[in-house]
């Protein structure tokens, strides 16, 4: 049976993590279809058709799908599900919102944030902030799975799958979209950036984060933060890295003024190289850092910024 990947998109292209979801799906079976639901989603459907490993794209056009409300998208997925062995979504804020609703309507369990496909019915997923790895097996007819994008390498593009138009379902009328307050940034998106510069409570103010922006821009890096920095209002919520924020795994993660609580480590400890800058030599962050430097960040960060060449 085929696998259905449900894609989030912005109308023009599917999110980068859809390629990761497709990569995961190809490990569950060979016939991968991608559902692109939206209003004027033609371009996004084309971008899905170009992904490697996609056999077919289903495009569902309906005004009700414009803003990805779970109450409207879930019934559409449920209607398609009987033709599929798996429904797969990236574990981002869209997938986490919709997939459990789909699973419950199908009366099946959901496998959250799979990091490995052992076999089509068996998956590894982190529990306890990544301090334990559970291998779970599903006996359900349809397996609803969210995958952690950083654990599945996206294939190259170059595909040319057929796009099939399918009908929509009636709007539920349960909820409506009012508006969004999105953080604007020219920097690379946190979860796909090759380098991430992250700041914590040690920065002491939102104003001081400007220092990290300068460093990030020199490195071509994305900007992240600890929960403490977000709670204190230094930076917006979407900067939060960790167990209950975003999971990142860049080539280089620079933790600045971050102590290294397990909840933070859960979101970044799969980074290839970790650098920690902290004035407390006992800070737990040093236990996971490849390179640590003990000292005052207000001295070290400007020095570092001056020392790295502009990219």
């Amino acid at each position: 049976m085929a696998i259905l990947v449900v894609a989030a998109h912005d109308g023009k292209t599917v999110r980068a993590n859809v390629a990761n979801a497709v990569a995961a799906a190809t490990q569950m079976g060979s016939d991968v279809h991608v559902l692109v639901a939206g209003s004027n989603a033609g371009e996004a459907a084309k971008s899905a058709a170009a992904l490697q490993g996609v056999a077919k794209v289903l495009q569902a056009e309906d005004a009700a799908y414009a803003n990805w409300l779970a109450e409207d998208i879930a019934p559409l997925v449920v209607k398609l599900a009987p033709n599929y062995s798996h429904v797969v979504m990236a574990a981002d804020s869209v997938g986490k919102n919709i997939a459990p609703r789909v699973a419950a309507l199908l009366d099946v369990a959901q496998i959250s944030e799979a990091i490995q496909v052992v076999s089509p019915d068996t998956f590894v997923r982190p529990i306890y902030a990544g301090n334990a790895m559970a291998t779970v097996q599903s006996g359900d007819k349809v397996k609803v799975v969210t995958i952690r994008p950083t654990n599945f390498k996206a294939g190259a593009g170059g595909g040319s799958a057929a796009i099939e138009q399918i009908g929509g379902a009636a709007a539920s009328g349960l909820s409506s979209f009012v508006g969004a307050e999105l953080s604007k940034s020219e920097r690379p998106e946190l979860t796909s950036a090759k380098i991430v510069v992250s700041g914590g409570r040690g920065l002491a103010s939102g104003e001081n984060f400007k220092m990290l922006e300068t460093l990030a821009d020199k490195l071509g890096a994305g900007l992240g933060a600890s929960r403490a920095a977000v709670d204190a209002g230094y930076v917006p919520n979407d900067y939060q890295v960790g167990q209950t924020g975003k999971v990142v795994a860049p080539d280089l993660y620079i933790a600045i003024g971050i102590s290294g609580a397990i909840q933070h480590l859960a979101g970044m400890k799969d980074s290839k190289t970790i650098v920690a800058i902290n004035k407390d030599e006992e800070a737990p962050i040093f236990q996971v850092a490849d390179y640590g430097i003990v000292g005052d960040l207000f001295q070290i960060v400007p020095e570092l910024t001056a020392a790295v060449e502009k990219k």
């Binding site: 981002d92 804020s93 869209v94 909820s175 979209f177 009012v178 969004a180 979407d238």
Partner: peptide, 16 residues
């Protein structure tokens, strides 16, 4: 009215 924490920032929805 619910303000939600989403990947790109915040989103407002109105639900019944």
């Amino acid at each position: 009215e619910v303000k939600r924490e989403v990947d790109g920032g915040l989103e407002n929805i109105k639900i019944k």
